[in-house]
Amino acid sequence: MALISGTARGRGRAAALRFAAEGALVVGGDLLHEEAVETQRLIAQKGGTALTPGPLDVTDEDSVRTWVSEAADAFGGIDIVYADAGAVRFGAIDRRPYEDFAFTRAELDSVWLTAHVAWPHLVRSRGCVLTVGSTAGLTRQLAAKGAPHGIRANCISPGMIDTKGTRDDLLAEEHPMRGHAEHIPLGRVGTPDDVVDAALFLVSDEASYITGTNLVVDGGWSTVLPGTLADKEFRT
């Protein structure tokens, strides 16, 4: 059974649909509950099995505990935790308020709380944790902690991915980083499916000897960061 947060839209919805198509029993969740339920309906229409117990706030311990408990009760355990929920705010440090910086704590809470609450179930199933980070940071603590129990923990770090969130922010006409998409070596902005393809591999048996890895899915953007000498050499 795959426990996936952030299933209302974007990468989370794409992950839920693909995992279900591959035969996983999916339990999704999102603060945008109606949209997460729509994801569940889409899975059912394609013959898959999914459950969306109720609105999920991945920064609230009670909400996460209820979600994990209902998932385990419904399907008898948890094999995969895919912590995909989260949101970020970008901007220059001299113009963004502290509230925007503090807001990004949700990115950490969403991973820590879900892994913390689901951990006993993962120990029993010798399961797998998959987080979604970014090219801005790496962590391997879950991999070290889980290895004695047979739990693998890996991270996917997407670059610029075409979702409603990025279209409203990073890819918006007025956003100063919008032009950075032109520097992506593979010549395009990523899609949610690009991220999910990597996720499916990392949670599969084919990746059974991979843990503590950060897989960057960014079309090569981080190898030629815009404005650097490497980028100039690439473009010439």
Rank of each mutant, 00 (worst) to 15 (best):
T39D: 06
I43H: 07
G48K: 04
A50Q: 04
A50W: 04
A50H: 02
P53N: 05
G54I: 10
L56V: 09
L56Q: 06
L56W: 08
D57S: 12
V58A: 02
V58N: 00
D60Q: 05
D60E: 10
D60W: 00
S63H: 08
W67C: 07
S69D: 14
S69C: 09
E70D: 10
A72M: 06
I78K: 03
I80W: 09
I80G: 00
Y82N: 01
D84I: 00
D84V: 07
A85G: 01
A87C: 05
V88D: 14
R89L: 14
R89H: 15
G91N: 11
G91F: 13
A92F: 15
I93S: 14
P97L: 13
A102Y: 05
A102C: 07
T104K: 06
A106V: 08
E107V: 14
D109F: 15
S110A: 15
T114V: 15
V117F: 10
L122R: 02
V123C: 06
S125K: 14
S125Y: 13
G127I: 12
C128F: 04
C128Y: 04
V129K: 00
V129N: 00
V132M: 13
A136I: 07
L138Q: 08
T139S: 14
R140L: 02
A143N: 04
K145Q: 10
G146F: 09
G150V: 08
I151N: 06
R152P: 05
R152F: 02
I156G: 04
S157N: 11
G159P: 03
I161A: 09
I161V: 14
T166G: 02
D168S: 02
D169L: 06
L171N: 08
E174Y: 06
H175V: 07
P176F: 11
P176S: 06
M177R: 11
M177A: 13
G179M: 09
